[in-house]
Design a protein around this nucleic acid. Structure first.
Lengths: 338, 338
DNA sequence: TTGAAAGCGCTAACAT
DNA sequence: ATGTTAGCGCTTTCAA
C-alpha cells in the first residue's frame, strides 16, 4: 500500500476522482465538462457525462466554494420567519438576487437575540455576503459584529455607516397613522407597544410624540404588548381599561390578533373602537374588517437590499442609509364603509 | 520569488495562516485553540486568542466542512415560505435539530416546480442532509432525484421507500371536514381546489369522494382555485354560482381570502355560507369569524421529520412512512355561536 | 485538446 | 505540548 495516511472522515460517496477514473480522463477534464467549457473533445465529454449519469455524481458545492473563493450564495438572518412582513422583503431580495445568479439561504433565529451573532457568523462563513433583517441585539454588539461579517447590509437598524442599511420610516409612518385617527375625531388613542429590543419600537414611540406635540388635546397612551398574534389577542383588557376609541398596534400581526379578540367579545370595529396596524401584510387586506395599515412597498425594500449588498460586495457602496417612506392604506377597521 | 503559481481568486481576508503567523505558532495550534482543545499551553492559547481578536478572525465554515467531511447543517427546501403552515413544521424541525447542535438552512423555491431539483441538489451539496417540504415536481423527477440527495426526508409526498417520508392524512382530514358539514345539515358543498401539482390536492379529492359515497344525497362540487389569499378572494363568484351553503377550502390561507371577500360582499358566515379550511395556521384562530379547520400538530410533524432525518444520516432508517392524522377544530365559521 | 500539480483554508494523524 | 504534513474535492495555471 502507498504511504497514505488513513482517512478518518466518511466524506462523500462519489467524487470527481471517481468520475475521472471511470471515464479514464483527468480530473481537470471532468471539471471542464461539468462547467461546460467548450474546449473538450465531444467523444470524451460524452464519456464523462455518461460516467456522471451512471454514478449519480454532483460536485461538492463546499469544495467548489473553497476552490473558487466564492459561492454565489448570500445568507439572510431573520428574527422570526413567521412574520409575513419579512416574506415580502425576502421575496424581493430573492428575485433580485436570482436575476444575477445568486442563491439565497435563510436562517431563522427564533427571536433569540443572544444567538444572532453566532448564526450570522456561521452563515456568513459559508456565503459571499449577508443581510441582517431587523437584528434584535444591542447596538454595541451589532457595531462590533458588522466588520466581521462584511459584506453586509442591515434592515431596519442604523449602522453608523459601518455597513449598508435600509430603513423603513416607522417614525413618520406612525405619525401619519396618528394623524389619520385624529382626523377621524379620536381623542384618546392607545399604542400597543412591541418588544423593547426591536429598535423600530422606539421609532414608533417618537412618531407618537410628534402627534402629541401637534395636538396637545389628544391623549396617546401606551400599553405593553408584543409582536405576535397571541399578544394582540391578549391585549384587550389592557386596551379596554384605557377607554380609548382607537388603537395603533405595533404591527399587523398584533392588530389582527386584537381584531379576532374584539370579534369574540362582540366589540364593533370601527364603531366601538378603531384599529390600525403597520406593514400591510397580505392578511390585512382580507381580514374582516380589512385592516388600516401603513404600506411600504416591501418588495422594493428587498430589491434595494440586494442592490446595496451587491455594492458592498463590489466594494463601491456609499453606505448612505436608504429610507423608505410608508404610506397610509385606509381600510374598514378605521373608517366605516358608506 | 518562490515558484508558487499566482493565485487567481480573491478569497477571504484573514485565514488561519495569518493568525498562526501573528501569534508565531503553527496552524495546528491555532486550530486547537479555535476548537477548544485543552492540551494547549495557556500562554500560547492567549497569544492566539489575542491575534484572533486583533485581526477579527473567524474560521471559514466552507474549509472546515470540507476538511471534516460534515457541516452539522441541514437544508430545507420549501415551495412557498409565505405559507404559515410551513413555519410551524419548520419551527419544530428547527428546535429538534438545534438540540443536537445542527443548524438549519432554508431555501424557498417560490412555487417553481421546475427549479426544485436544482435548488435541492445545490443546498444538499453544502449540507449533511436535506428535507423536502411538499415538493411540487412530478413523481418520476422526485424518484430520480432522491438517491442523489440522500440522506433525505420528504414531507407530504410518498417516496416508495426511496427515502423517509412524513405525511399528513389530507384524505381522511377532508373526509372529516365533509362529515362535519353534512352533520350541520349542508347538502351542497363546494371544494375550492388547490394547485394540481400539489399532491395533497388529489388526497383531498379522494376524501371528498368518500363523503359522496357515504351520503349519496349530498352534492360536492369542485371549483378550481389555488393556494394563496388572492385565490380565495377571487373565488367568490365561482362559489356563488354553485349555490352551495358550505365551502371547504384547499387550505386556511385560501379560506381566509374567501372570508375577507365574503365580509366585503356582506355575506354572513356561517349563516349564509359556512367556510372551512385546512392546516390550523395561527391566523385561523384569530380571524373573524374564527375559522373551522383541520389541525395536525405541525410542530410534532417537524420534530418527527428531524428524527427521520437523523435516522437516515445514521443509515438506520426503516423508511416506513409516518402518517399524522389531523383532527377537527370547530370554530365560528361553520357553527354559529350560542 | 488534455493532463499534472498547486492551491483554496482547514483538521488530524503522526512525529517530536 | 507543539509542529509537520497529508488530505478533504474541487479549479486553474502551466506545460505538453
Amino acid at each position: 500500500m502507498a504511504g497514505k495516511r488513513a482517512r478518518r472522515t466518511p466524506s462523500r460517496e462519489t467524487t470527481i476522482s471517481d468520475i475521472a477514473e471511470a471515464a479514464d480522463v483527468s480530473k481537470a477534464t471532468v471539471s471542464r465538462v461539468m462547467n461546460g467549457i467548450q474546449t473538450v473533445n465531444e467523444d470524451i465529454a460524452e464519456r464523462v457525462r455518461d460516467a456522471v449519469r451512471r454514478l449519480g455524481y454532483s460536485p461538492s458545492e463546499t469544495a467548489r466554494s473553497l476552490s473558487l473563493g466564492v459561492s454565489r450564495t448570500i445568507g439572510v438572518v431573520v428574527p422570526d420567519l413567521a412574520n409575513p412582513m419579512f416574506h415580502q422583503v425576502l421575496h424581493g431580495l430573492h428575485r433580485a438576487a436570482a436575476r444575477e445568479g445568486y442563491r439565497v439561504l435563510v436562517a431563522d433565529t427564533l427571536e433569540d437575540s443572544a444567538g444572532e451573532a453566532t448564526v450570522a457568523l456561521d452563515i456568513r462563513n459559508r456565503t459571499d455576503a449577508i443581510a441582517l433583517f431587523a437584528p434584535r441585539m444591542p447596538r454595541e454588539s451589532l457595531l462590533e459584529l458588522l466588520p466581521r461579517i462584511e459584506p453586509v447590509v442591515v434592515l431596519n437598524r442604523t449602522t453608523g455607516e459601518r455597513a449598508g442599511s435600509v430603513l423603513i420610516d416607522y417614525e413618520d409612518g406612525t405619525r401619519q397613522l396618528g394623524e389619520h385617527l385624529v382626523s377621524l375625531g379620536h381623542t384618546r388613542i392607545v399604542y400597543l407597544a412591541g418588544p423593547s429590543e426591536a429598535r423600530s419600537n422606539s421609532a414608533r414611540q417618537r412618531g407618537l410624540e410628534l402627534v402629541r406635540s401637534a395636538h396637545p388635546d389628544i391623549e396617546v397612551v401606551e400599553v405593553p404588548c408584543g409582536h405576535a398574534f397571541e399578544d394582540g389577542h391578549a391585549a384587550w383588557p389592557g386596551v379596554r381599561a384605557t377607554q380609548a376609541s382607537a388603537v395603533i398596534a405595533f404591527n399587523d400581526v398584533v392588530a389582527l390578533g386584537l381584531l379576532g379578540r374584539l370579534d369574540e367579545e362582540g366589540v364593533a370595529v370601527p364603531d366601538d373602537i378603531a384599529v390600525a396596524g403597520f406593514d400591510d401584510i397580505p392578511f390585512s387586506r382580507y381580514s374582516s374588517p380589512s385592516l388600516t395599515t401603513m404600506t411600504a412597498r416591501l418588495g422594493d425594500v428587498g430589491e434595494r437590499t440586494w442592490a446595496m449588498l451587491r455594492a458592498e460586495m463590489r466594494g463601491d457602496a456609499d453606505r448612505e442609509p436608504v429610507v423608505f417612506e410608508p404610506t397610509l392604506a385606509v381600510r374598514a377597521s378605521t373608517e366605516a364603509r358608506p
